[in-house]
Design a binder for these strands. Structure first.
Length: 109
DNA sequence: AGCTTGACGTAGA
DNA sequence: GTCTACGCCAAGC
């Protein structure tokens, strides 16, 4: 349980921590060799894409964050080079710094 | 309290 | 095909 000691208490339904947890859980479930997008993950979890990005920048170290790219297949700038390298190492088709989402987008089936 | 920033997305030029 | 503008939503100052 979350002891929200001081900060404006918790509201029923979804605590921020739970949302982040849900996002990380989805990202963790992305199969190797497949790639998803911030928007797709956000849709599965029920939050906006920026919330997904925020969650990854925060606790992405614990999940395969490199399997999440932008809607157009490009990688976020702060991690661009590293992400593309990791994806290429998994056999993900990358064309001129953009992932071929048509081939590896998850979920798609 | 308001303003700025950010691992985004979509639409229009 | 690329670039710009605007919307979203939460965190940080």
């Amino acid at each position: 349980m979350r002891a929200d000691h001081l900060t404006g208490s918790v509201r029923p339904g979804r605590d921020p921590g739970d949302v982040d947890e849900a996002v990380l859980d989805v990202v963790e479930s992305i199969p190797a060799g497949r790639v998803s997008t911030y928007g797709a993950v956000g849709r599965l979890v029920g939050v906006g894409p920026r919330r997904v990005a925020r969650a990854l920048s925060q606790g992405g170290a614990a999940v395969p964050w490199h399997r999440v790219v932008r809607a157009d297949g490009s990688a976020a700038e702060p991690v661009r080079a590293r992400q593309l390298a990791l994806l290429a190492a998994e056999g993900v088709p990358v064309r001129r710094q953009r992932v071929d989402l048509a081939a590896v987008l998850w979920p798609d089936d």
